[in-house]
Simulated assay, not measured.
Amino acid sequence: MTTARFICIGTHHKTGTIWMRKVWRAISNDQEIPFMQVYRPKRLADLPESGPQICVNWSSSFPRRLMNMPEARFIHIIRDPRDVLLSGMRYHRVAPLANEKFLRIPNPEWGGMTYQKYINALETDHERLIFEMENKHHETLEQMLKWPYGHEGAADIKYEDLIEDTDCAMFRGILEGFAIEGLDIDRAVQSYWDLSLFGGLKKDDDRSDRVNLHVNSGAKAQWVRKMPREIAEIYAERYADALKTLGYAEDSSWVETCRPAAEIEAAAA
Results as ranks from 00 to 15, higher is better:
207 R>A: 02
13 H>R: 08
181 E>I: 03
169 A>M: 07
225 R>G: 05
130 I>V: 14
263 E>D: 12
23 V>T: 11
88 G>T: 12
170 M>V: 13
155 A>R: 15
13 H>P: 01
141 L>R: 05
242 A>M: 01
43 R>Q: 15
3 T>V: 13
147 W>F: 15
107 N>A: 06
175 L>D: 03
127 E>W: 05
84 V>Q: 09
124 T>W: 04
9 I>Q: 10
235 Y>L: 02
72 A>K: 12
105 I>E: 09
90 R>H: 10
98 A>E: 07
202 K>F: 03
46 D>G: 00
55 C>D: 01
62 F>Y: 09
263 E>R: 04
113 M>R: 08
52 P>A: 14
39 Y>I: 14
37 Q>I: 15
178 F>K: 10
30 D>K: 15
148 P>A: 10
62 F>R: 15
203 K>G: 03
206 D>K: 11
89 M>F: 05
71 E>A: 11
212 N>I: 01
168 C>T: 12
193 W>A: 12
66 L>N: 06
156 D>I: 10
188 A>F: 08
269 A>G: 05
252 S>R: 13
203 K>N: 08
80 D>G: 06
20 M>R: 13
202 K>T: 15
175 L>K: 01
129 L>H: 10
115 Y>D: 06
161 D>I: 10
116 Q>W: 05
200 G>E: 10
61 S>P: 00
79 R>I: 08
36 M>P: 01
206 D>I: 00
225 R>S: 08
262 A>R: 12
146 K>D: 08
45 A>E: 15
18 I>E: 09
8 C>P: 09
225 R>I: 01
197 L>K: 07
30 D>C: 11
187 R>G: 10
44 L>F: 08
119 I>W: 00
196 S>I: 10
95 A>T: 00
182 G>Q: 07
83 D>F: 12
230 E>K: 02
59 S>M: 14
249 A>W: 04
244 K>E: 05
38 V>F: 02
93 R>A: 10
9 I>P: 14
109 E>W: 14
5 R>F: 04
41 P>R: 14
232 A>Q: 00
164 E>Y: 15
161 D>L: 12
194 D>P: 08
90 R>S: 14
147 W>Y: 08
19 W>H: 07
7 I>D: 06
236 A>V: 01
89 M>P: 00
58 W>H: 15
68 N>Q: 13
15 T>Q: 11
160 E>L: 07
241 D>Q: 11
21 R>V: 08
180 I>H: 04
31 Q>W: 09
216 N>P: 00
230 E>M: 04
142 E>K: 13
218 G>C: 08
56 V>A: 13
39 Y>T: 14
128 R>H: 01
3 T>D: 04
199 G>F: 11
179 A>P: 00
203 K>A: 11
186 D>Y: 07
199 G>K: 12
14 K>N: 04
143 Q>F: 10
156 D>L: 11
204 D>P: 07
171 F>S: 06
151 H>Q: 09
81 P>T: 03
97 L>Q: 08
43 R>P: 00
201 L>I: 05
127 E>L: 10
